[in-house]
C-alpha cells in the first residue's frame, strides 16, 4: 500500500485549477494557428487572432482566459494500491477547488441549489468521477467547464436501426443548435453506447484527448474526420459570425451497449478548453 496524504491532493487540485484557467493548452494554440491558415472569413480570422492574444494576456497577467471559469469537473484514477491518508478524497478535492479559485482570482459560478440559486461563493463543490484502476498511482484530471457551452450539450436514445447515419446526423444537429451561443469554434465530446449515464460520462471523458490527435480506433478516427468536415461546412464560423472554422475537433468514445439501444451523448465544449492533469 502506498500512502498519499490529502494535503498533496488539495495542493495539486489548487494548482491545476489556476493553471487551467490562466494557461490555455498548447493544443489550443496550435488549433488557432492551423485554423488561421484555412479560415476565409475576415471576421473569423480576426476572432481567432484576438483569441490568441487573449491566451497570451491571460498567461502573462495570470488572469482568467474567460470570465466563466467553469464548473470544476474532476476525473480521478485511483490506483487500488493507494491509501489516502489524513481525510476524505472528496473533501480534499473540494478544498483544492476552494483555494485555487480564491487565490487564482477565479469566478465563483456555482449555486447551492438549482432552485434557490444562492452562490456557494467558492466554486465548490466539484463534480467528481472516480475510477479505481490497477497500480499505486493517483491521477487527477480536471476541467474548468464553461456553462454557456454546457447548456447546449445534448443526449438522445437512437434505435439500433438508426445506425451510424443516425449518430452522424445527431452530432451535426448539435453543432447547429449550439450555434454562436456556445462560443465556436467548438470541440465536441461524443459518447456512443453504454447506458444513459455511461454515454454522458464518455462524452466528457472524450474531451481529455489532445485536440488534433488521432483516435486510436481507426473506425472512430474516420468518423471523427468526416464529422469535423461536415461541421466546418455549416458556415457558422468563429463566434457564429460566419466562416469555415466552426469546430476544432470532434472526439468520440464508444462502449458496448444493449441489443435494444443506441445511446448518444454530446458534450459541447467551447474554445476555452481548459483542462490539466497530474499524477501523484
Amino acid at each position: 500500500m502506498r500512502e498519499v496524504h490529502v494535503s498533496a491532493i488539495t495542493d495539486t487540485i489548487k494548482k491545476l485549477c489556476m493553471e487551467a484557467n490562466w494557461n490555455l493548452g498548447s493544443e489550443m494554440l496550435r488549433a488557432f494557428d492551423k485554423a488561421l491558415t484555412t479560415e476565409r472569413s475576415p471576421a473569423g480570422k480576426q476572432v481567432l487572432q484576438i483569441l490568441k492574444q487573449n491566451a497570451e494576456m491571460a498567461r502573462t497577467k495570470k488572469i482568467a482566459y474567460c470570465q466563466d471559469t467553469g464548473f470544476t469537473i474532476c476525473f480521478v484514477e485511483l490506483g487500488q494500491d493507494v491509501h489516502i491518508a489524513g481525510g476524505g478524497l472528496t473533501d480534499a478535492i473540494n478544498e483544492g477547488v476552494r483555494q485555487g479559485y480564491k487565490e487564482g482570482y477565479l469566478r465563483a459560478s456555482i449555486v447551492k441549489s438549482p432552485f434557490d440559486r444562492v452562490n456557494t461563493g467558492d466554486n465548490t463543490p466539484a463534480v467528481i468521477h472516480v475510477d479505481v484502476v490497477r497500480g499505486s498511482e493517483l491521477k487527477l484530471m480536471i476541467m474548468a467547464k464553461g456553462g454557456g457551452c454546457e447548456n447546449r450539450s445534448k443526449y438522445t436514445m437512437l434505435t439500433p436501426a438508426a445506425g451510424i447515419e443516425g449518430v452522424k446526423d445527431f452530432v451535426i444537429e448539435c453543432v447547429k443548435m449550439a450555434g454562436p451561443d456556445a462560443c465556436p469554434p467548438l470541440i465536441l465530446g461524443v459518447g456512443v453506447g453504454g447506458t444513459f449515464e455511461k454515454a454522458a460520462l464518455l462524452s466528457k471523458k472524450a474531451l481529455f484527448r489532445e485536440i488534433g490527435s488521432p483516435n486510436p480506433d481507426p473506425t472512430l478516427d474516420a468518423l471523427e474526420k468526416e464529422l469535423l468536415d461536415r461541421a466546418n461546412r455549416l458556415g457558422i464560423g468563429p463566434q457564429g459570425y460566419g466562416g469555415d472554422t466552426t469546430s476544432f475537433g470532434i472526439q468520440i468514445l464508444a462502449y458496448p451497449c444493449h441489443i435494444t439501444s443506441l445511446p448518444v451523448a454530446v458534450t459541447i465544449e467551447c474554445h476555452a478548453h481548459r483542462h490539466k492533469e497530474a499524477t501523484l
Binding site: 482566459y65 470570465q67 482570482y105 469566478r107 454557456g148
Partner: peptide, 19 residues
C-alpha cells in the same frame, strides 16, 4: 457579463460576454 475578481491595481478581472 459576470466578471472574475480583479487583481490588485486592476479595474476588473476577466470580463467577456455570456449567452
Amino acid at each position: 457579463t459576470g466578471p472574475t475578481p480583479p487583481r490588485e491595481g486592476d479595474a476588473i478581472g476577466s470580463v467577456g460576454p455570456t449567452t
